[in-house]
């Protein structure tokens, strides 16, 4: 017996308990950090068929979001523009640029440009762009500073927690309606809060938190 279990065995339980505690903390912290959308989704930046730069078009040239995403004010869906929208300018500007070949092909054949979707909500989540932008929630709030992105990346976690944070307390993210598409607009935080509360009251914003608001 005693040769099978040398004396140091008696210290094992303490060591095992300590080891388990440490590994439990490490594993939880690891899962918390690495396996949540804040890490796993933020920063997603796929290579697109056409290296369209929002920084150039929005940041430098001052294009309005709605020039391309025409449906955002009136539908649940912020549409991807058809290639003809690109050709409005690019039939004159850089008409033979090789980067734009997929666009020209698409106009000719009618086959859509295979853009890679970056922001997606689960099938069981209903999200409406129109109700958000028409009540003073800016594009920036969810998509980040698009005007500075050469290539679009996933900026926010867009988890349920992300939605809920704003739905429970919308005031900090409500801005004047004429500034919704202004990517660079900022307000003094104290005044913003006051203005936001007033907007929530005046525009009767009822950001619901019941389940069926999003899971219909």
């Amino acid at each position: 017996m005693s040769d099978l279990f040398p004396r140091w065995y008696n210290q094992l339980p303490l060591k095992i308990a300590l080891g388990l505690l440490v590994s439990a903390v490490v594993v939880s912290a690891g899962v918390w950090y690495y396996l949540t959308p804040k890490y796993s989704r933020v920063g997603y930046q796929p290579i697109q068929p056409v290296p369209y730069s929002h920084a150039t078009h929005v940041g430098q040239l001052g294009l309005d979001c709605r020039y391309c995403h025409t449906g955002v004010e009136s539908s649940w869906y912020a549409n991807i523009p058809s290639p003809s929208v690109c050709m409005n300018c690019h039939s004159q500007v850089l008409p033979n640029d090789p980067h734009l070949a997929p666009i020209r092909d698409s106009v000719k054949t009618g086959a859509p440009v295979p853009w890679v979707q970056i922001h997606r909500t689960s099938d069981f989540v209903y999200f409406n762009h129109a109700v958000h932008v028409n009540r003073g929630v800016s594009c920036v709030s969810c998509h980040g500073q698009i005007n500075k992105m050469v290539e679009v990346r996933h900026e926010q976690s867009l988890t349920m927690a992300f939605c809920l944070d704003c739905h429970r307390n919308p005031a900090p993210n409500i801005r004047p309606l004429d500034q919704v598409y202004n990517m660079t607009w900022t307000n003094d935080p104290a005044r913003q809060l006051e203005a936001g509360v007033r907007c929530v009251r005046d525009w009767k914003i009822r950001s619901s938190h019941n389940c069926s608001a999003c899971h219909r």
């Binding site: 005693s2 004396r7 140091w8 065995y9 008696n10 094992l12």
Partner: peptide, 8 residues
């Protein structure tokens, strides 16, 4: 647990 015990 006390696996090592002189009585054994």
């Amino acid at each position: 647990p006390r696996w090592h015990n002189p009585l054994f």
